[in-house]
Computed example of a mutant assay.
Amino acid sequence: MTVLRGASVVLRPAVGEDIPALAAIRATPEVRARWSGGDAPPDLEADIAEDLEDPATRCLTIEHRQRIIGMIQWYAEEEPDYRHAGIDLYLDPAVHGKGLGTDAVRTLARHLIDVHDHHRLVIDPAADNAAAIRCYSKAGFRPVGIMRQYERGADGTWHDGLLMDLLATDLVR
Rank of each mutant, 00 (worst) to 15 (best):
Q73H: 12
V115I: 11
L121Y: 07
D43W: 02
G86E: 14
G161E: 06
W158T: 13
H159L: 06
M71Q: 14
E78N: 12
G153V: 08
H116M: 08
A168N: 05
G70M: 06
I87A: 09
T102F: 02
G16I: 08
D47C: 09
H119A: 12
C135V: 12
G101M: 03
M1D: 02
L89Y: 15
H118Q: 04
H111V: 12
M147N: 04
P41G: 10
H84P: 06
P29K: 11
L163P: 00
T2W: 03
S36L: 13
P80G: 03
R12Q: 15
D160S: 10
L91E: 04
V144T: 01
P20R: 02
L60N: 05
R58H: 14
P93H: 01
F141R: 02
Y82W: 15
Y150L: 01
A49Q: 07
I19F: 05
G99A: 05
P93C: 06
D88M: 15
I87C: 09
D47F: 14
W35G: 00
H96M: 05
G99L: 05
V115F: 12
R110Y: 09
G70T: 01
P125R: 06
I146H: 01
G70L: 02
D51V: 07
R134N: 10
A131T: 07
G153W: 13
D117R: 09
G6C: 11
V31G: 04
P80S: 02
Y90N: 00
L166V: 10
Q66K: 14
V95E: 07
D165M: 04
R134F: 02
E17G: 11
R32P: 00
V95Y: 11
L167W: 07
S36H: 07
A127N: 10
E151R: 15
G38T: 01
A132R: 09
E151D: 05
E53I: 03
P143I: 09
G97Y: 08
D92K: 01
M71P: 03
R148H: 14
I87P: 05
A40K: 04
D47S: 11
H159F: 09
L89H: 09
A127H: 10
A127G: 08
V95K: 03
K138A: 15
P41M: 06
L4A: 11
L171I: 11
P13F: 10
